[in-house]
Every structure is written in C-alpha cells, then in structure tokens.
Simulated scan of single mutants.
Amino acid sequence: MRASRFGFCVALLCAALSAGATDRGSGHFRKGEVRLEAKHVIAVTVDEEGDAASAQTYVYLSSVPMDAGKVASAFQPSSAAEEQLRDASAGYVRICINAEGGECGLYFSHNNPNASFNSSGYGVFKLEAAPAGRINGRWVLAEPDDFFGETYDFDLNFDVAITPPPGKPLPADGGEPGKAYRTWTTAIAKGDLPALRALVGDDYNSWRIKSDDQDDVKGALKDLRDGTPVQAKVLRGRIDGDNAVLWVEGKDRDDILRRGRVSLARVEGAWRFMEADLDSVSE
C-alpha cells in the first residue's frame, strides 16, 4: 500500500512539473549577413504519414511570437508559420525531429531581408530527457561552414511543450468525410463536372472547374485525374469540427500508386474537397 501511494505521488509530481515547465528557446542562426536571434519557441506534431507512429515534431525558433495552435491545426504547418511573419523583418528556424529522435532537417526563413536555407547532417544534434509531451535539445554548428561562398553557423536550444493536431479519430472508413472523398474521386474518374462543382471547396480548383473557359475546365480536370486515385482506400482520418484530414492511398488512371493526405471542410452542411498532398510511392 505504501509503495502504491509513493508511486502515485511520484506520478502526480512528474505531471505537475511537466505542466508547470516553462518553454525556452534561444540561440542564433546566421547565413551571410543575415542573423536571426531566437527569442520564441513552439513545437508541433506533424502527422503526415499513413502510419501515425511515424509522426514528426517540428520545433520553430523565431524572432517573433508564433501561435502553436494555428501551426498545429494547419494542413501545411510551415505555410501557417510563414503567414505569421507577415511583412515584418523577422524569421524562424524550423527543426525537424523524427519519431526515433534524430534530426530530419533544418530550414531557415527570414523576411526583410529575405533569406532561406536548408541543411541536414551538419553540426551536433542532441536531445535530452524530457517529460511526456515536451522536447528538449540543442543543435549547434560552432565552426562556420561555407555554402556557395557564403558562410553560415548556428547554435539553437529548445525546451518546449509539443502541441498536437486538434481533433479526434474518424471511423475506419473515414465517416462522412470519407464518403465525400470517394464521391469526389468517382466524379473525377467520370469527368462529372456538375458533381465536381458541387464538391469543390478551395479557390484554385473552384474557379478553374467553374470557369466559362473550357480550356480552364479541361486543364483542371486533367490535373486532377493525373494525381488522384481512381478508387481510394482510407487508411485513417481525423476530424476537428468542420475540418477533416484523411490519409488515403490508391492507384491513379496511369496505374501509379498514390499515398498521402486530403483536406476536407464542411460548408453549409456538406463536406467539400479542399486540397490534397499525395505522392507517388512504390508498391
């Protein structure tokens, strides 16, 4: 009984320490004459693979505050991060950390002056022990390296809570969003423009499919057919209010296996296709 009470107290203490921990991000990234001083940090789970166990963590060290919730809930997290820089003289460094705890790339982005840079495999990357739901580490390249005549170096430190994507799992078949996506792929395969016009939700496909110019319509339909599975299998899905993400796979009309994510939104009570991020994969 005493041992059980002790274990319970330790668990409560660990939870309290984790909940009360302060997020810390510091250091710098320099590329040529552009230098970023990291003053703010967020971390988000990036769940893009068909297998949820392969989810990555993105740590953003920035010169301006970022909204972790907006980045975590975005279909394209780094696009959401870019939007938060706006037109200010500001920037961030994004550190990718894989499910095994190794680095999977560093990306530097800065506005006014504009600069960007990708790197992986350089310097020393190390994670420290951290409570569940947090990530703590450092990535440093102490001696400047050269990239096409311009030197760069960095020293980045972080200890931060990880913000997961919002929402809850969908049923195995994708539920109503899954049904809507299968209707979408069927309409593409058949070239059913009235159905596509009713199902499309994003601006790019919307104006092309609904255009009075038949060349626009034909081009949109060809683009969709080239990269969309004829019959899609839903691997899993997640729903957050009126937004849903499906992980799908299937062969397109050229018998190429496609796998990736699809974004849908409920508009006026009906699920509509917003965008997709599908890659060709080996069987």
Score class of each variant (00 low, 15 high):
Ser78Asn: 14
Lys70Tyr: 01
Pro171Asn: 04
Phe8Met: 01
Ala244Tyr: 03
Gly178Tyr: 06
Thr185Glu: 05
Arg24Gln: 14
Ile162Pro: 11
His28Cys: 07
Arg266Ala: 03
Asp47Ile: 02
Ala198His: 11
Lys190Leu: 10
Leu235Val: 15
Ala232Phe: 01
Leu170Tyr: 12
Val140Leu: 12
Ala115Glu: 12
Ile97Met: 08
Asn243Trp: 00
Asp146Asn: 13
Cys104His: 03
Gly91Phe: 08
Gly25Phe: 08
Ala142His: 08
Ala276Thr: 14
Gln214Phe: 00
Ser109Tyr: 15
Tyr92Asp: 07
Ala68Lys: 06
Thr151Cys: 03
Lys218Gly: 02
Arg208Val: 03
Ala74Lys: 06
Leu221Lys: 06
Gly149Arg: 05
Gly25Thr: 10
His110Cys: 04
Thr45Asn: 09
Glu37Gln: 14
Asn114Phe: 05
Gly149Tyr: 13
Gly123Glu: 09
Phe273Ala: 01
Asp252Phe: 00
Tyr181Thr: 02
Gly121Glu: 07
Ala161His: 05
Arg238Glu: 10
Leu193Ser: 05
Ala16Tyr: 02
Gly133Cys: 07
Asp47Ala: 12
Ser4Val: 13
Ser120Phe: 12
Asn157Thr: 13
Pro77Asp: 08
Ile42Leu: 15
Trp139Tyr: 10
Ala3Pro: 02
Val34Ser: 12
Gly133Thr: 06
Glu275Gln: 14
Gly178Asn: 06
Tyr204Val: 01
Ala11Arg: 15
Ser4Tyr: 00
Asn118Asp: 15
Phe147Gln: 07
Leu224Val: 09
Val267Arg: 13
Arg259Met: 14
